[in-house]
Amino acid sequence: MLLRRIYQFLLIYALGLAGLLAVKYLAGLSDYVIPGFGALWRTGGEVTGRYAGDVLDTLGVAVVGQVVSVLLALVIGILGRQTTWFGSFIKVAAYNVQAYPIVAIAPIIFILLGDGFLSRLIIAAMICYFPLLLAVVGIMSEPVTDIEHFYRQTGRMRWQLEVKIRAFENLSKLTTVVSGSATLAMAGTIVAEFIAAGAGIGYSIRIALYQSDLAKILVALFMIGITLSVYQGMLERAGQMVKQVWAR
């Protein structure tokens, strides 16, 4: 699965790059608009090491942001699963709050908290959290009637058991949601870095943009893609292991 993720990414990246280079050579564009293969290779040699460090820095923030989001989404999702006033309030609040574009909120966070780790973490968690919450609330609100009915009739149903049944029955969905949210967490961190932070691959992309250096941006995209593919592959593998352990 991990290898499949990597070669799928390499294929997509190669296709995208080939498309760009085709446009460049067909339209006769300079290296300033679209860098040639030689310029890309040279730039790759110059910045890959530095960008690898930047991507790992970004990934570190994204992973912490994702863990925070998953935990928070599980807690709120479990509370929001109930058909009570509180459950309904949480669902409505989640829908409403996620409507705010993060680029509008991010500058306020940076002004209040500075351009360090915490601001990046909060923005990553915010971008990752709401879609996760909606998915978790959706899964946890759906009764598994056949199984739950037995426990209700025998009077043995407790909230912990209800959550466990629903989580187990929807484990594939939950794994996919958590794995997919890795992309969101990474994207969130990069957005935060691009807007105002002073570290990470998003910040490096911004500098490359100031320098009008598309070659650097393409190298950065490669580094982000490959890192994310590995991370998502690992998450999927972890999901499979959890499933196997639960199924015993």
Binding site: S30, D31, Y32, V33, P35, A39, Q211, S212
Partner: peptide, 12 residues
């Protein structure tokens, strides 16, 4: 600086 960078990369 934009003009010089672009010229270095062959922009017309």
């Amino acid at each position: 600086d934009q003009v010089i960078l672009a010229s270095a990369k062959g922009a017309p």
